[in-house]
């Protein structure tokens, strides 16, 4: 009986994940076992990205993908660029090892990789940014969103008018202190004829929410984010008006295409979890990322188009090099 084994990835970028998937499919006839791609990094063979920590080895066989231009003397490493022959050789070696360990008749049938234990994320400390974020959210959720006056040490007041989703800051946002003691908030009740302290047109509230959200948790989930839940993007932020990195754009695109937990997004984009959570804190505060409640997602089939993915993935990489992103 043909045994079935699984391949998992740890901190491998999506381009290489798709490349491996495509190569495994092409090499199927040359192998004596069936190889499935696992949804978690726990699998029979775990391929580690160039920067994945060795201590996180969780496979029966752990192999490492070399970085671009890296020369390795370790025969366990997969050289870069990844070639079908190298992958095939590694899988044949794994098949031989596994048979020697358990015998063909005891080799596992389709073994879904065991679910990774849930990751417990620490909650964020109550910084000034976090308190400001919470205050804005509460006011926006109330019947009458009002005006918030933000007083920072030795600074003129920053005014937020939630009715107009605008704010006015007499200083650059990155000069705003982040510790709780340095910020004092005053919530001002408004009536229909209360004049706005924010001159027209003011600055879009999204800019402030993005700034506050990215800093509110300092790598930990803010109270308005549950990183274990799946989130889906409602719509893209207006990146032409927000200071951002290429990583933010990558994460937004991923959350736009499927509902993901923080760990899923980290794995999919090859981005550290703190950056993922900071981005989720910001997007959720802006109302752009929603919990995927009540929507059942069935993985009917993978619609991955390896040619398209490798073409675009490679193109993004070359744009990064050219423009120094």
């Amino acid at each position: 009986m043909r045994p079935t084994y699984t391949i998992g990835f740890l901190e491998v970028d999506s381009y290489h994940q798709v490349l491996v998937r495509s190569m495994v499919s092409r090499a199927a006839a040359s192998l004596s076992a069936t190889w499935d791609i696992a949804e978690t990094p726990k699998a029979d063979v775990v391929i580690h990205g160039p920067r994945a920590a060795a201590k996180n080895a969780s496979g029966r066989l752990n192999v490492r993908l070399c970085g671009q231009g890296e020369i390795s003397n370790n025969p366990q490493d997969l050289p870069a660029p990844l070639r079908l022959s190298a992958l095939l050789e590694m899988l044949k070696r794994a098949e031989a090892d596994f048979v020697n360990t358990v015998g063909v008749s005891k080799a596992p049938q389709i073994q879904a990789a065991p679910q990774a234990p849930p990751v417990i994320h620490e909650t964020a400390a109550r910084t000034g940014m976090l308190i400001l974020g919470e205050t804005i959210l509460k006011s926006l959720a109330s019947q009458k969103p009002g005006i918030i006056k933000v007083l920072c040490r030795d600074r003129e007041a920053l005014w937020i008018d939630l009715r107009r989703r605008a704010f006015a800051a007499p200083y650059a946002l990155n000069e705003m202190p982040e510790d709780a003691d340095a910020i004092r908030l005053e919530i001002i009740a408004v009536s229909a004829d209360t004049a706005s302290p924010v001159p027209t047109p003011g600055t879009s509230l999204d800019r402030l929410l993005w700034h506050v959200g990215l800093r509110a948790g300092a790598g930990k989930p803010a109270p308005w984010v549950n990183p274990a839940k799946r989130y889906k993007l409602k719509y893209w932020p207006n990146f032409s008006e927000l200071p951002h990195s290429i990583t933010h754009m990558n994460l937004v695109a991923r959350f736009g295409s499927e509902a993901l937990t923080a760990d899923d997004a980290s794995l999919r984009c090859g981005v550290d979890i703190a950056t993922v959570i900071n981005t989720m804190n910001a997007l959720t505060l802006m109302g752009l990322l929603n919990e995927n409640n009540g929507v059942e997602i069935r993985r009917l089939q993978t619609v991955t188009q390896p040619e398209q993915v490798s073409r675009v993935g490679g193109l993004i990489g070359r744009f990064k090099s050219k423009f120094g992103w």
Partner: peptide, 9 residues
């Protein structure tokens, strides 16, 4: 890239 890698929902 993200759309082409996403599973069908």
């Amino acid at each position: 890239q993200a759309q082409s890698e996403a599973p069908m929902e």
